[in-house]
Structure formats: C-alpha cells, structure tokens
Design a protein around this nucleic acid. Structure first.
Lengths: 339, 339
DNA sequence: CTGAAAGCGCTTACAG
DNA sequence: CTGAAAGCGCTTACAG
C-alpha cells in the first residue's frame, strides 16, 4: 500500500521536449543559459506529462533537504500555531517544507536532542522560538557546527538573524496608558524571570513608572510563570495586600486572564474595582469578559519573517534581524480610575 | 551555507564491520536472516562511526517518503495543536516525519490542492481532521487513487480507518446532566450544520430531552458556526426571547464562551441567572470565569490513534477505526436551578 | 545467512 | 547555450 505517482522523470520530459535531461533540470531550477525557445518546449512537456520533481532524488544529489525545522517549547498553543502558520507562509512560495519539533528547554541534553533531529531529518536550517532562544548551549552548538538558524525574539538580537520586537517599549507604553487613566498603584505580574521577555516587560513597566514619576515598589511586583495558574496565584497575593493596587499589568495574556479569573472569584469587578491588562493579544484576550487591554505581538508575521531570513541565507542571500512594530490594544478591562 | 553531516555512509560502516553494505542495510532495517554476531558487529560499527542513515537515499531507493501529512481546516488553534502533538507522539517512535498542511474545506478545488501536496512532498499517507473529513469529493479522490489516509471523526466511521468518539452519547449525557440539575428550558446553540459534529451534538441534545420527557422546541435551538462570535450572537437571540432558557448547551467551548461573554455583557450571572455548558474541554474552558462545564474530547489521544492506524497500514499491518471515550467535566458554569 | 550488481531520479562537475 | 558521464546513498531483485 503505497502512494504511486505517475513516475514521470526528467528523462521522460527530456525525451518529449527533445532536449537532454540536464536541460530539463536547468529549466526546473531556473538556471541561466537556456534559450527562451528551449525553455518553452521543456515547460510544455512538463505540463503535458504532469511532471513533478522527486524531492528525494534532488536532495540526495544536491545534499540539501529543502526542509526547515521549527523548534518550540511554549505552553501557549495559540502562540505556536500562529508562529507555525507564519513559517508556512514563508516556506510555501519558496518551495520549502517544514518540520515541527517540540523540545524541553529545561532538558540538560537539549543540544544533543536538537543535533539528533538534525542528523535524522537533515533540515537545511532551524527556526528557534522563545524560550529556546535563551538556551546558550544550544545556540553555541548550532554556531559551532555551522548549522544555519534563525531566531524569534532572541536574547541578543544583534548576534542573530530573525525577528524581534521592542518589548520594553511596548511594556512601557501600556504602563503609561494605565498612568494616563489615572492609576498610580500599578502592580506587575512578571513572567518566568529566566526568559528575556519577562525581563524586557519588567523593564518597560519600571520605565513607564519612572516617566510618570511614580516610585517603583517591589511589593507591587509579583513573580509569575507566564501560566494561567500563576496569574491566579499572583492576583491572590496582590488582593491580600493591605493596599490593593488599582491596576495590574500582567506580563502576558494568559496570566492576565488568571488575574481576571481570581478577581471574579474574589468578587472584584473588572475594570470598576480593578483594571487589568496583559501582553501578546492572544485570541483569549477578546474572548474573556471584559475584553482585555493588551499589546499585540504579531506572531504570525514574526514566524514568517524569521523563516524568510533563514531561507534568504539558505538560498545564498543575506539574513537579517528584523524588527516588527507592536500595537497597543485598548479594551474594556482597563478604565479610568475616576470613572 | 549548508548543514553538513559526518557523511558516513553504509559503505563505511560495512568496511569497519567487515561485511557487505547489504548486510548493514539488513541490520538497520531489522530484516531477518542476519546472524546475531554479525548484527552486533554492524551495530558496533554504526555506533563508533556515528552513522545516521540518509533518508533521501532511502526514500529514493524504496519509493517511500516515511512522511505523513496532517491536513486541517479548523479555527481552533488549540484543537490543531493537540491533534498535531498526538500525531507526533505516534510518528516519533516509528521514525516517521510529519508535514502539516492547512487547507480550506470550502475551496472548490480542495481535492486538487491535496493532490498537489501529494505530488510535491509525496507523503506515504494522510491524516484528515474535521471538517475536511466531510469533503466527499476529497475522500473519493483519495480512495480512487489509492492514497492511504486515516480520519479523525469522519462522517462515516464504518468506511474509514482512524478514530471516532460517540458524540451523540456525550451530548445526550451533558443534556441529561442539565436535566438532573432541574433545568427544563434548555437551549442549544448548534455548530455549523454542514459538520457532522454539529448534527451529532444536536441529536444528542434531542435525545437527552426525549429521555427526560421534555418536548423539543425549535425556538430553543439557535444556529451557530462553532465560533466565539456566533456564540455571542446566539446568546443575544436567546436572551431576547420572551421566556429565557435557564440553561444553554453550546455545541463547542468556543461558542459557550461567547454565550458567557454575552451573558456578562447582558448583566446575567452565570450560573445563578443562567447555566452554560460547552463541548470539547479546550484550554479556555478552565480559564473562563466561572469554569465551564463541558465534555472532554481527548484530542491529543485521537491524533495519536489516527496516526497509528495509518502507520499500521503503511507498515503492512491493519488499520482500524478506534473509538475513544469521552468524559463529562462538571464545573461551576452550571448549577442546580433551585440553588 | 550473505553479497554483487543494478537502479531509484536527480545534481554536480566537466566538456564543448 | 547544451549535453554526456559520474555519483549522491540507499533498496530491490537476484544469486549463491
């Protein structure tokens, strides 16, 4: 039981077109030095025979797989799906395939596991997403072995190709927005602090306070883990404090949703009793009540751009580190303090 | 710029092991007729040389790709991710790779698009997820051309291999649960009626009513689209009716969340003013307030099982249609009517 | 139980 | 601008 394709080979196309196999190959690969007339004949034969190149043969001969691998270790299913879709957006028109590989960023042998994938499937390059981009050992291994890769939001954008976003500026902006609404006791629920994103967002929060002349209080900062339940826990801590904040900025939407969940559980109305905002603009941001004020990170675009940078280098061009803009999404979960 | 592997070939292993290349191939493919001693020698050589087989060469020679393609057209990112993860669970240990392919189930040329993928990437088989399993033309094309495929929740389980679940029974059970809680005016928000799942769930709802001796009222059934916003709209319709239902069973969690959203918007308390339940047990079910009563569909398991059935047939074994059990998840979004 | 030969369908390297 | 030859690293089909 096996898929059998027409089994038309370049050979057959060549015969029909009245040229050599090599010429068919040239046309198919858009190589120069083919007369327009010859090209046409070949293309016509390809068409009439319904010829489809055999990628295995091409890979074997050229020692390339025309495959990229997307590596991830992110609890957010929507994040991974958006990124994956973006990578596919980039791969499709350039005739590359994509493999996906979930990895545990805390595994001590993560570099070996990655190399095992590289040996088995031989992707031409890799795309790393946070928090895998934080694994120094992994990045070093890939660089040492000369394996091309591209990063989404790496710790050090200057040293990699891929895509990044000014998360600190975004976090600063959303904090400033809370200030504009009249809030002064603004709490922050951080992400897992080993992730750069958590640091960037905390930095932005502090900068937002500084710009408004509001003192930074560690009592208003609670550590989360980027998960829903850590948002619930953080909110519990904050609600128990003597002087409750009037607004909470959670470092991602998942935690912000947890904060809202706990607020409801605690009998607090959002935004009347407390304003809540998040970060990412994941689908849930619009599906909770009230809709969540957040920062939109264009994950699909970022996946596409990261993949494009990688493909550029694979095709002999140049890969860069691109920066995408963010958008502040003002919704109903935040309100003016003197409503 | 290209990944270069050690480039150890079977040839090299054969030389080191002191056997022929064919024997190395036999050992690697677990073929019979190799002396234990010989096998050991080969394995030792493989180990010492860090040999990794070249899949392209293997594919070219054997005319198999060792690849399956997961086809989807589902708006729920968590659904796709869970299924994909399940498929990966099955592929990993059997050394198959997975491609993913988003498709538009409404495209008139869906069969051609699929065949185009088949011609380009030559997967050994396909895995179809709803609603692609509803595309008669696609299924027919695949069968006609002898392309192996496996289905998740196909319209007609008896005619395919893969995995299914008794959705009607599950819908009946959750309806009965509402009845147990004392509800009699129970509304249903259907999914997109062209999907079998929508029909099965509606059937189960009707059966649940019938078992309780409650008459079926079309005024209590509103058409949705399986989307969040269609849930919002449906709730709006139901809340506007003269006699509001005391409970709403939405055909999936996405719509149930929309119903809850609209309830909040409308100033109705869940579950005090109205009970709401869904179907799927997607991650959001536990993240909304109050947590959503729903039916758990084990999507990851289903992905794994569907893939396993396909791989069985690809490896010369038998593929079956498996049935997985569901679980009723009782949470706080539903309550007794005389609380 | 083992091996020598041919061939899968391409690209590379070279020649003209 | 075009082509003949060799070879990529495996498996298949056959022989012993």
């Amino acid at each position: 039981m096996r898929i059998r394709i027409g089994d038309v080979a370049q050979d057959d196309v060549a015969r029909v077109a009245g040229v050599s196999q090599k010429t068919v190959s040239r046309v198919l690969n858009n190589e120069p030095n083919v007369r327009a007339k010859t090209r046409e004949k070949v293309l016509a034969a390809v068409q009439s025979l319904q010829y489809h190149p055999n990628l295995s043969a091409r890979s074997l001969a050229s020692n390339r797989s025309f495959l990229v691998a997307l590596l991830y270790d992110n609890p957010s299913q929507s994040y991974v799906m958006e990124t994956l879709t973006g990578v596919l957006d980039a791969c499709e028109p350039r005739n590359f395939g994509m493999m996906v590989k979930p990895l545990d960023s805390n595994a001590p042998d993560i570099a070996e596991r990655t190399m095992s994938l590289v040996h088995k499937r031989r992707p031409d390059g890799l795309i790393l997403t946070p928090p895998l981009t934080e694994c120094g050992e992994l990045l070093r291994t890939l660089k040492d072995r000369g394996i091309p890769f591209s990063c989404v939001l790496p710790h050090d954008p200057a040293e990699n190709i891929g895509v990044t976003m000014d998360e600190s500026a975004a976090a600063c902006e959303i904090t400033s927005y809370l200030v504009e609404l009249g809030h002064r006791r603004i709490a922050h629920v951080t992400g897992r602090m080993s992730h750069s994103a958590a640091k960037w967002r905390l930095d932005g929060y502090r900068e937002g306070l500084r710009l408004a002349g509001i003192r930074y209080h560690t009592s208003l900062v609670v550590q989360g883990q980027f998960t829903f339940s850590s948002g619930v826990m953080a909110a519990r801590t904050l609600f128990a404090s003597r002087k409750r904040p009037t607004a909470i900025f959670a470092a991602n939407d998942e935690m912000a949703t947890g904060v809202m969940w706990e607020a409801a559980h605690h009998g607090l109305m959002v935004p009347n009793d407390i304003s809540v905002c998040g970060f990412d603009d994941s689908p849930m941001a619009e599906q909770v009540w009230p809709p969540l004020t957040t920062v939109r990170q264009p994950n699909r675009d970022m996946g596409r751009i990261a993949a494009d940078q990688l493909l550029n280098t694979l095709e002999g061009g140049e890969g860069h580190m691109r920066t995408v803009p963010y958008t502040l999404c003002k919704r109903e979960s935040t309100d003016s303090i003197v409503a």
